[in-house]
Design a protein around this nucleic acid. Structure first.
Lengths: 174, 174
DNA sequence: TATTGTTATACTCTATAACTATA
DNA sequence: TATAGTTATAGAGTATAACAATA
């Protein structure tokens, strides 16, 4: 077994035996279990946002970034452009966002938040932060920060990985 | 905005502005992006294992834990018991595992690895470790270990979270 | 009656292709 | 011709329900 990629402490206070190669030493298992736990609680926390977790992410993106197209929004959030249509439809149905044609290119629809959208986002965000803390309840605040930072860095690089694996093409990209 | 759950450094070397509340500061987005990146490369790495990533996880579990039933195996791996049937079928079809009735309870099918199964697992595991390192390529070895440890701890606790949220019942559990 | 494994069915999510309107 | 958005359709994956064997 290759131990260079794996913590070399035989046993730690969490009770994980990293040398045994059990399922809890698998990054994929941790990722899946954490994702399942998160999506379960997150779905409840953002239940008031139409479109669910994806609707929430759209609200976050359009309130913190310059308005772009639905397409680049979809690529940035890691969802399909066809799914983006339904999400924006749902948000627009409750007047949380509005579509506006780009003045310079009328094919492009900018997605802009309304005041109601910002308000809905604020309450959802607070609820989400609360349950996130509950998910990481056995990590002290410092460890929670470390985890957030490390995951964000890996996530930002994840787009780079696909190119070095040899994916055929990034649709719309270059 | 509640900053108590979020790293308080305004800007770090990864270029993330934690105070702005952008999409890359969202745990859910990091989790999703990391999962997408991982499953893309993991699917390739374990392509030789029938049943894909889930077949791989079954092999890991049955080679490191005492033989149990398909049901507890499914619960442990976080997949449905009906899906477990297909995964075990696929593994058994290539003689990587064998089903054996539990001597004390003939309803239960123990799932045991064959020598071929152990060999297939070893090669897949090596391939997986390699691409995992590539996914976390911008983290130094120490940071990779930290990330593995923190995620494993949260994942192990994830099962506990569902009970304190108030899920109706854990099917089969108590 | 309850439980394990299995099968069949339905449903959700995602991906693919085709269509429109603009460029 | 190419691109952004939309729609319709098909596929994979997942969950639900019902059934057989055993306890």
């Amino acid at each position: 077994m290759d131990a260079s990629q794996v913590p070399d402490e035989p046993l730690e206070r969490s009770g994980i035996d990293w040398g045994a190669g059990g399922i809890e030493t698998e990054l994929g298992w941790s990722l899946q279990a954490m994702s399942q736990g998160f999506s379960r609680i997150a779905t409840v926390a953002v239940a008031d946002v139409p479109g669910g977790p994806r609707g929430y992410q759209v609200l976050v993106a359009i309130t913190t970034e310059a308005p772009t197209s639905q397409l680049v929004l979809a690529q940035r959030l890691g969802i399909d452009k066809t799914a983006m249509v339904y999400v924006v439809d749902a948000l627009e149905g409750e007047s949380l966002v509005e579509r506006r044609p780009d003045p310079t290119d009328r094919r492009i629809r900018q997605v802009l938040p309304t005041d109601q959208g910002r308000a809905r986002l604020a309450t959802a965000r607070a609820a989400l932060r609360e349950v996130e803390g509950r998910l990481m309840t056995n990590l002290n605040p410092e460890e929670q920060m470390q985890l957030r930072r490390l995951m964000a860095r890996v996530a930002l690089d994840a787009g780079v990985v696909e190119s070095c694996i040899g994916v055929v093409a990034v649709p719309g990209g270059r």
